[in-house]
Amino acid sequence: MPSRRTLLRSIAAGAGVAALGVAGTQAFGETVSGGAAAAAPSPRKVDINSGSSGSNVTALQYLLTAYGYKTTADGDYGPLTEKSVAKFQGARGLVKDGWAGPLTMKKMLDSGKVAAKRGWDNRSTVRAAQTLLVKLGYEMAVDGDFGPLTKESVEKYQAKRKLTESGTVDYTTWTYMFSPPRKPGTGFQKGKAVLVAQSGSGLSTWAYDCGPAAFVALQLRMGRTPGKWTDVAHRGDAINYARRTVLGMTNNTRGTGQIRDEVGVVAGFKRLGVDQARTGGFDGALSAVRSGGVSMLGGDLAVCARWNGRSTGSTLHWIALLDYSSKSGKYQVADSSSKHNKLVWVTRGQLASFASSWGASVCIK
């Protein structure tokens, strides 16, 4: 049975979509030739999950501070950030669940208190905007000074998204910066989808190589050539190279433990120059793939073995999520434990069952 918190989130999310839809239909741009009013772009839904991390969380934390709920801007949506969000919600008559969902973010962003512009004196609000602009590729210092460079960057982004080029971070601009539109199938899905199976790889440390195998599979899908990679027949060299160098594992064990958790995998990607790698949990992993990225997802080997014609006991295991089909609603999985050495397409429900025992993930988008 769904928990009360799950039900509240479902109800709030639905209400949030409706509220944003109403706001969009009532907003109109300048009159165009012929006397017809051109509809302005509708605000986008912003939904930031507790337990997530990254630039969106950092910006949220700056905004909470701007509203008077002092929150450390460390990019980690932990218990202290949840408490600040709950305080914000309580002051505005919302459900105090600590989740920065669509209704909460609309209250936070659709306000003159955060309509940052040139000379804006609330430095926390400006830092929130600058953090998002840096995420979007605009170079600047996150210093809280809304000067000429920040104004110019806002205008450029507004022009790119066909928003009103005001240089003011209004509600719609905030939502686009938090949740920019993405085209499915673009982004980091540039290379071939390849199964880097452990079976037949010739590895003596087979039991510890699911993580490095998924790590190599993601690099290939991103259009990169992993260290020591020649072809799929000699995949063992690339897996071993990843585990013993980039991932910092010792010869026959997990060593530093990096491959056991997502933090170590993120560090491995950063060593390769991939700064977009982030921890994201189950929802983050699937969201990244739907928006054109790739993910590693941790869970129970006994569950995913059934997708691949195997039977095995329960143990922690990594798989690679390489693609998403909007037509079937399924995700393409490269599972190094596959008996048949082939990629499989699985449902969200199957992935949820797999991840229920662990749910760690690394998202790249």
Results as ranks from 00 to 15, higher is better:
Leu132Ile: 10
Ala59Val: 14
Val46Glu: 14
Ala302Thr: 09
Trp318Glu: 15
Gly90Leu: 01
Thr72Gly: 14
Ser201Ala: 14
Lys270Arg: 15
Thr125Asp: 12
Gly236Trp: 08
Ser336Arg: 05
Ser287Trp: 08
Asp323Thr: 01
Met1Ala: 13
Ala352Val: 04
Gly35His: 01
Gly236Glu: 04
Thr315Lys: 08
Thr225Lys: 10
Ile239His: 10
Tyr208Gly: 12
Leu94Gly: 10
Gly268His: 08
Lys342Met: 07
Trp358Asp: 14
Arg9Ser: 14
Met296Phe: 11
Ala360Gly: 14
Ser337Thr: 06
Leu322Trp: 03
Arg4Val: 13
Ser153Lys: 13
Trp318Val: 04
Met296Asn: 08
Gly51Ile: 01
Lys83Val: 05
Gly298Ala: 07
Lys107Ala: 14
Lys190Asn: 06
Gln61Tyr: 04
Lys190Ala: 09
Thr256Ala: 14
Val196Glu: 03
Phe88Cys: 06
Ala217Ile: 07
Pro226Gln: 03
Ala66Trp: 01
Arg44Val: 00
Ser338Phe: 06
Asp143Thr: 02
Ser201Asp: 09
Gly202Trp: 09
Gly191Arg: 00
Ile11Ala: 13
Leu218Trp: 00
Ala193Arg: 01
Thr72Phe: 10
His340Pro: 07
Thr347Met: 08
Gly98Ala: 01
Gly329Ile: 00
Gly191Trp: 00
Asn252Asp: 12
Ala36Arg: 10
Leu322Cys: 09
Arg278Ser: 13
Ser337Trp: 00
Asp335Thr: 12
Ala15His: 00
Asp275Gly: 12
Phe178Lys: 13
Lys83Trp: 12
Val344Asn: 04
Val85Gly: 10
Cys210Pro: 02
Tyr331Gly: 11
Thr172Leu: 05
Ala305Asp: 08
Leu149Met: 12
Leu60Ser: 08
Thr31Val: 11
Gly298His: 13
Val266Lys: 10
Asp121Asn: 14
Lys70Arg: 11
Gly329Tyr: 00
Ile259Gln: 12
Thr225Tyr: 04
Gly359Trp: 00
Asp261Glu: 13
Thr6Gly: 06
Gly24Lys: 06
Thr58Phe: 01
